[in-house]
Design a protein around this nucleic acid. Structure first.
Lengths: 226, 226
DNA sequence: TCCTTTATGCAGTGATCGATGCATAAATCG
DNA sequence: CGATTTATGCATCGATCACTGCATAAAGGA
């Protein structure tokens, strides 16, 4: 159900160029290699030399095909998202209730962040990427937007659940979505630190164990202190 | 027991050197400036030139006082921890129950990660630091150990709660501590992305809203799917 | 005062960073 | 076959990286 991953390979002719010497490498495969490297090491710690070696091409070909390191990173992030988003969001989309959706999202995140069914790098590229605050403002904003997209999906699903009668009208879907997003972000850090799949699954389970309390009486069931 | 924070200022003579030209700068203040810079920008994105400017000293003095960039970072991390750990763990230690302790930890983390009472950098230096996987293996391990220390404190407190009768004997304190740690890690990422204090407080509140379900019947209240 | 010790400022070390110039190779088009 | 267009390999660019050598300055001990 979650194998949209099939889109990751199978590109034979990306753009049939009419004239000039044909490209010697598979741009999709090279992008996949670059994506994996960025995913593992992050933007700043990945040098052009690292990339050319992993992609199996020279610097001239890299710049001819992708323009610059920043543009390559942006392409890699897009590739990452389109290739692997299904791992995390497919069951979420098919879930009948908001709670099932949230649980599926966190459970599948636990799987994806610990390598998926093949041995993907651990952790979430979009969540953990630093892309230093100074300079790279475009990339920094792109990352932020990518992360914000996850929040939007969660909140939209929870809002829909209100129409379905699945969630009470008083439920704070914004804070609910923020909470789920925060747990997933935390799982990314734990995965990077070596957490195994069982640990992350347990976290997902615990995170939603108070769902009824949360969605029912979020504002008067807790004594807010601050 | 917990207010070692007093050590952050008030150092007049760190080590009364007997001979030679005296140091012209305040090593503690310089370390504080370096810590702040590392905190904001991370290890890789902070250059020696950035550091010397922020610390107000030359490179020769920096290396004479701290040895290398790696050693300076290790000192900064120690300074960060000893100076600010009280912000997050003081109320935790004084809390009468495990639940109160966990809530205090998350609430105070929300405050600390959004600037505290003065304008500290947002996010958690120990959680968000990358310190690239390659090279820097010592620093990388130091960061991991620092993060693991938080888990140990949480788990120890929850284990103690079992003796107090505060938690049921069947409660899974390991997964409980991992969950709280994961939520706090996620808060660090949200804070770096611009989340305000109210949002993080709401997350803390929601995270513990299922406490009774978690601690009481963690293993049969949920249907484990994976 | 002279010697030793430590600290500082300036200039510069080799290494690596991201990115390019240039000559050449390989394709299509006329 | 030229002519044009695109791709690649090699050498290299200037900038910046973490870090140091050297001369000098400022302290204590004799």
């Amino acid at each position: 159900m979650q194998n949209d991953v099939s889109t990751c390979s199978g590109h034979s002719e990306p753009t049939p160029r009419s004239r000039g010497r044909p490209r010697e490498f598979d741009a999709q495969a090279a992008l996949a290699a670059a994506t994996r490297l960025f995913w593992i090491k992050g933007y700043e710690a990945t040098s052009i030399a690292d990339l050319t070696e992993a992609m199996g091409i020279g610097t001239k070909s890299l710049y001819a095909a992708f323009g610059s390191k920043d543009e390559l990173y942006a392409e890699a992030l897009k590739y990452y998202y389109t290739t692997y988003e299904g791992l995390v969001w497919t069951r979420f989309r098919a879930a009948p209730t908001a709670r099932d959706a949230a649980l599926a999202f966190l459970q599948d995140s636990a799987i994806a962040m610990t390598g998926g069914d093949c041995n993907l790098p651990h952790g979430c590229m979009a969540t953990l990427a630093t892309v230093g605050s100074e300079g790279h403002s475009e990339l920094s904003e792109l990352m932020r937007a990518t992360r914000a997209g996850g929040f939007d999906l969660l909140k939209a699903r929870f809002d829909r659940a209100k129409s379905d009668g699945d969630l009470m009208a008083a439920a704070d879907t914004t804070n609910l979505a923020r909470f789920v997003q925060t747990v997933q972000s935390g799982m990314a850090i734990r995965a990077r630190d070596g957490a195994d799949r069982d640990e992350l699954h347990a976290v997902a389970e615990i995170a939603l164990s108070g769902w009824d309390n949360i969605t029912g009486n979020i504002d008067h069931g807790m004594q807010s202190k601050a």
